[in-house]
Design a protein around this nucleic acid. Structure first.
Length: 490
RNA sequence: GGUCUCUUGGCCGAGUGGCUAGGCAGUGGUCUGCAAAACCAUGUACGGCGGUUCGAAUCCGCCAGAGACCUCCA
């Protein structure tokens, strides 16, 4: 059976069979964070979505170059707005250097991505480290005739570009609609048309991040960095470009136009966009002031959070929804995810000690096919997970001896589940480091519980209950089993 | 205002023109001295009104509600 990997292409609004430009190799570019605030739940969505894609492509034996940028240029303006002299006169050292801000939040982002088990991309370029490339890109666009200079700034002429190129295709917009719907904004008089966007901007006096260029001391336009850096690391044409849906317009539309203007051909084969995380039905975003940071999720320190949620709970929560659907945050949804994830991981532990039989009563290949078919259908992780819960049922049934599995099948499915859950979905076992002190501690708890077994054997319920109750009050959870006990420290 | 999208059972969340998604909660059971945990089993659904069709929650139209983008945003 032919089972091809299909992905939804925003450009064509259809699912398409994925076929890389060069067989066996994939170039993908994803818009990373603008590092001016703590990483929040919204940042985790594209990171996890495209981490899944990255991992799955590697699982399919592609050699992948994954580029995810850090935007550290263009949006950073000195805090002292409104020309307040008192603030400006204060000692310079009391103000944060822009790069200090960038460093702080980049570190925060990386730390949280690690916790979420998001693999680092192959290359993580920073906009500030590619000013030269961006200036070159501006020059190329000027040479192509689709840009013009105005008062030291360079603007991209959308209407001129649209005369013999597509503009608006990605975001489904028409030039006429764009013209009639553009708002009146300040500082638009330099532009020939409100549709035009800056690719190089002359810096105002208060703008602290600035670089020399042939046109002015200034900084590159926001959309430009992605064109320049994707071209540099992936070539003029590459396979996949990803990002949040909110970036389709204007960012990606502009990027597409710039890249084509600079390179003469369309750059991206497949555009993929993840949907938003919502809070009470509204997009969660820093600018909306309703974003909950990942640090807060992991610590539980936020008025809206009933408790702390582990990074794996967040990861599981996201993968339980399709990446192109909005996903609504709530405590009950996260707690449901937490329990579901625990059940899945518990079954993975049970998997290690399954009894094998002569024959299998279960069809492990059918299971594997269903999981992979779901992934092949535009990364349908929720369906894949649904089938993995069938696997949970299967594992538990074999454990309870109501189903059987052959040794050969056992090795096969164990290997597949390990690969799929840990390498593709990126789940991790809960981190329980067994240091030597920990082992002694474990032995002591076992000792106490063995005493309890003896007490039980003697029908000394008072002692048995005392041991259990006291341990419980210390935060242990005691479970009696057929042949003994299990415990864990909550 | 323009463009587009969404509306699924107590909650989250898939999917499909006719065949049980799944998770959590609930209920019943197994296990247990009791309990907890675990495991097994299980119900309620597709915003409203029309239309197409042998058959629609799934396609079309209208209405209602919600959201996204149009400005920095994942």
């Amino acid at each position: 059976m032919e089972n091809q990997f299909v992905i939804y292409n925003t450009l064509t609004r259809k699912k398409e069979v994925f076929k890389p430009l060069i067989p066996g190799y994939v170039g993908m570019y994803v818009c990373g964070p603008t590092v001016y605030g703590n990483a929040h739940l919204g940042h985790a969505r594209p990171a996890i979505t495209f981490d899944l894609l990255f991992r799955y492509l590697k699982f399919l034996k592609y050699k992948v170059r994954y580029v995810r940028n850090i935007t550290d240029v263009g949006h950073l303006v000195a805090d002292a707005d409104e020309g307040e002299d008192k603030v400006a006169k204060k000692a310079k050292l009391e103000m944060l250097e822009p790069m200090e801000v960038v460093q702080m939040y980049t570190h925060d982002y990386h730390k949280n991505m690690d916790l979420l088990n998001v693999q680092p991309p192959s290359i993580e370029p920073r906009a500030s480290g590619h000013i030269i490339e961006q200036i070159e890109t501006v020059q190329k666009i000027l040479d192509s005739g689709y840009a013009y200079e105005s008062n030291g700034s360079i603007y991209f002429s959308v209407q001129k570009f649209a005369e013999n190129n597509e503009y608006g295709q990605l975001s489904g917009r028409k030039i006429e609609d764009l013209i009639s719907n553009t708002r009146e904004l300040d500082g638009q008089d330099e532009k020939n048309s409100p549709l035009d966007f800056a690719i190089w901007k002359k810096a105002q006096a208060e703008h602290i991040m600035r670089w020399p260029s042939p046109w002015s001391d200034g900084f590159p336009g926001w959309h430009l960095e992605c064109s320049a850096m994707s071209t540099k690391y992936l070539g003029k044409q590459f396979d996949i470009h990803g990002g949040g849906m909110d970036l389709t317009f204007p960012h990606h539309e502009a990027e597409m136009a710039q890249s084509k203007a600079a390179n003469g051909k369309p750059s991206v084969q497949y555009w993929m966009h993840n949907n938003m995380i919502t809070l009470d039905g509204q997009k969660m975003g820093k600018s909306l002031g309703n974003a909950i940071s990942l640090d807060q999720f992991f610590s539980g320190e936020h008025p809206l959070l009933e408790k702390a949620y582990s990074p794996m709970t967040i990861r599981f929560f996201m993968l339980q929804a399709h990446y192109r659907s909005t996903l609504d945050f709530s405590n009950s949804a996260l707690q449901a995810a937490e329990k579901g994830y625990a059940r899945l991981m518990k079954a993975m532990e049970t998997l290690e000690k399954l009894p094998v039989s002569e024959n299998s009563s279960v069809d492990i290949h059918a299971l594997q096919d269903k999981v992979l078919a779901a992934m092949n259908d535009d990364l349908n992780s929720p369906i894949a997970l649904a089938h993995l819960f069938d696997a949970v049922k299967m594992i538990n049934s074999i454990h309870d001896k109501t189903e059987t599995i052959s040794s050969k099948d056992y090795q096969y499915i164990k290997s597949f589940l390990h690969t799929f859950l840990y390498d593709v979905l990126g789940f991790q076992k809960s981190i329980g480091d067994a240091s030597s002190g920990q082992e002694v501690f474990n032995d002591v708890v076992d000792l106490l519980l063995n005493l309890r077994i003896e007490a039980k054997a003697n029908k000394d319920w008072a002692t048995a209950d005392k041991i259990r109750n006291e341990l419980t009050s210390l935060g242990f959870e005691i479970k009696d089993t057929k042949d003994g006990f299990e415990w864990e420290l909550k």
